[in-house]
Nucleic acid binder design. Sequence first.
DNA 1: ACATCAAAGAGAGCGCTGCTCTTGCTTTTC
DNA 2: GAAAAGCAAGAGCAGCGCTCTCTTTGATGT
Lengths: 235, 235
Amino acid sequence: MTAIQGARERARREITAAIKDEARRRLAEEGASRLSLRAVARELGMVSSALYRYFPSRDELLTALIVDAYDALGEAAERAAARAPRTEPAVRWREVCRAVRSWALAHPHEFGLIHGTPVPGYAAPPQLTGVPGTRVPRALLAVALDAHHDGLLGASGFGPLPEPVRAEAEALAAQNAPGLPAPAMAAVTAAWAELVGLVAFEVFGQYNGVVQAREEFFTHAVTRLAAEAGLGAAP
Amino acid sequence: MTAIQGARERARREITAAIKDEARRRLAEEGASRLSLRAVARELGMVSSALYRYFPSRDELLTALIVDAYDALGEAAERAAARAPRTEPAVRWREVCRAVRSWALAHPHEFGLIHGTPVPGYAAPPQLTGVPGTRVPRALLAVALDAHHDGLLGASGFGPLPEPVRAEAEALAAQNAPGLPAPAMAAVTAAWAELVGLVAFEVFGQYNGVVQAREEFFTHAVTRLAAEAGLGAAP
DNA sequence: ACATCAAAGAGAGCGCTGCTCTTGCTTTTC
DNA sequence: GAAAAGCAAGAGCAGCGCTCTCTTTGATGT
């Protein structure tokens, strides 16, 4: 009863996964806005109405894909942080950023799903996307915090923060990275958005006729972001 | 014949504009993916087929809106650069960035149209979006170049660029900002994407439960971007 | 072992969509 | 004034998200 769990539940799990897989496949072909339940069902040999036994609406399917994408991207970032040596914060930071970029380039449509235009009206429910959606910034933060604990965090070298920003960075650090200096917290928060911006420009083709040596340019840019946060230049 | 230009051409111009206006209005209400030609036509008292005399397809309408959005955003950036005193490059830079942010917050769906997920399959034709799409980075570049000409551009203080990046920055500068040092060119190129990333995080709600003092945070972040490009801290 | 119940698939159908094609009408041009 | 071109309207096609009903099928309590 626990091992086999009943043919029905097993089937349900498998079919749910198959639907999401097929949806991801069609997402890559047609894009989120053109994702059609009927096409997914057709491809799976089901009838469209049967799909509603698994997802109550098209938007719920999209939400499930969004949560999966957040988790996949977050895990890629966390694994990169775990792989890189703790003694080299700048390298760890860089590798986290490169992992984000690699995942995004490998899954452009899923990246677009989580960091592109939100489809108005259904805006993925925060109680589902809240935690998975912060795994990347938490990975960046962990790198900075570890560096701080190891005495490897330099000054961010830009003078004190202006007031409302300092207080808020202080509060954010207290809650998410106890002990981290406010300037580093602020730098990481900005770097998160800036990292996504750099990746989005590549994925969405904005750098198309502009930057050729994409990977080197990206690595250089995120290394500077690391320096902003107080993580010394990498070798 | 030139002044009145014929009732027909005048009507065509006006109706085209009315269609785009109504489409923009519906864009704000429903989002790009739900933008419906029929709804636009209905709101205008036309029949849907009549709309095809003005735009051959829904995607062409979207493309027209994209070009308009690029132009509006670019003009906002350029006006901000023109308004700020040339003697204060950091202030000029900051104001350009703030103009981008203000426009995006005022027109979130149009911003999403140009910097969000591209709808696959039709990807706005480069010959239309190419020039308007680079007005913002050109405005940033102009600020840096003016500062350089006025002797107000400091070192970007990060050591020399790694090789493939330096050569490419050199080439980009030669073509788009003759005389600008390569490090500044590279910094501006990265800052463009980073600026859009910061704005997108606000517009798309990614900073929602995270950053409260959005405007101050943004201003601080882009001031740091300015410093990266060699434009000294603003007062 | 059998009856009961809930889950699942099939199919029809509603109102909407983008888009095409044909049919008349109006403005422009010669 | 006649021919040509531009334009709106309407019907119609295939596809969409989604709902409802009906039947089949697997799980469950006695």
